[in-house]
Nucleic acid binder design. Structure first.
Lengths: 138, 138
DNA sequence: AGCTCACATGAGACTCAATATCAATAAAGA
DNA sequence: TCTTTATTGATATTGAGTCTCATGTGAGCT
């Protein structure tokens, strides 16, 4: 199933319509690659002469995130960034260089296991987590 | 050394003045206990008839955080919360209940070690980290 | 204690990401 | 094609946080 059919199905499941704008936002974020905020996505689409509004970008991104097509990333600068979850792009956390702003992805099995364990130990179930390492080049 | 003398010394080291407002913000956050945002601190002080401005609360909190007297916590709802670091209140991370909003502190030696290791492995030095577990009661 | 002045404060303007409003538009089933 | 109802776009609004600047005040100096 191609990725736009997947979008269509997800939207239908939620009772949403499959509109050109939603397709454009989704395709744009995938084409751009990496981590981007709504303003960047909006500018990119505008730059291509696309007819889309800021409000629609924000609304669409919210829907995509809620349905797990994209992943939200907040690094503490007051701007939410998003990345497309491609097939085979499994869960990962982020390392942010405080000097360059570079975002590096990492994944560690043991780390994941420990978190489940800690939640468990306190009588909770782990739903999701935010884990960011702020680093600088050695 | 009592905690207000400590505040005084820290301010002097940075070339800042030891003012009633800075003492009030610091004392208020300690008295309240737990995690609070600037607006709550401001309201609390106002409620006591104290003469203090919103701007000063924000400015003071920033100074306290930069000097390690308090710890900043962002759970992703667009409001920064702070907690006083008491003596013997060592580093910890947070578990946030998505149903009640409760904030539980946790600390795990192994987790800390792993993070250093991961940064290292990528050629970086770990400066600080943000680690939050969003959980719900089992 | 009084003087001085650079730093701090308070009130309100301002910023900026994000959300809400609402008339006009367009999916999508009949 | 028609009709219904969600969606869109333009813009206003919100809200946390920051900035400005005239006024106030800590603290070193005499």
């Amino acid at each position: 199933m191609d990725t736009n059919t997947k979008l269509k199905q997800i939207l239908r499941n939620e009772g949403f319509r499959y509109t050109p704008q939603r397709q454009m936002v989704w395709n744009e974020l995938r084409n751009m690659g990496g981590h981007h905020d709504c303003e960047e996505i909006y500018d990119e689409l505008k730059g291509k002469g696309t007819r889309v509004s800021r409000a629609t970008v924000y609304r669409t991104i919210e829907v995509l995130a809620r349905n797990g097509l994209i992943r939200k990333l907040e690094v503490g600068d007051g701007v939410a960034r998003y990345e497309a979850k491609e097939d085979g792009n499994h869960h990962h956390d982020h390392m942010i260089c405080i000097e360059t702003g570079d975002i590096i992805e990492f994944y560690n099995e043991e780390l994941e296991r420990l978190q489940e364990e800690i939640a468990e130990k306190h009588g909770y179930e782990l739903v999701r987590h935010v884990h960011q390492l702020f680093v600088k080049k050695k």
